[in-house]
Amino acid sequence: MKLYEVFIRSKAGLHHKHAGSLHASDPQMAIQNARDVYCRRNEGVSIWVVESEHITASNPEDQEALFDPAEDKIYRHPTFYDVPDGVKHL
């Protein structure tokens, strides 16, 4: 049995969100298992499954290099800017 990651779209227009993982021998079984394990209470309208080994993840040791440099770039947030009085419909 392989490990699969399950992504569920909760309703049309929203994106698929990681719901959890499960074991299955093939993708069809993974979809069925995902339906039975993660969609019992009307959680979804669409399911994606992907073998966990096909996911490339960032290395926790790289965390500082990857994420810390964004910390002092507050000008990347829209709240950094004052909206001029004349601007409407924003």
Binding site: M1, N33, V37
Partner: peptide, 11 residues
């Protein structure tokens, strides 16, 4: 036999 099938059968 496994959790996933247990839930599927119970469903």
């Amino acid at each position: 036999p496994v959790l996933e099938q247990d839930i599927a059968l119970t469903n």
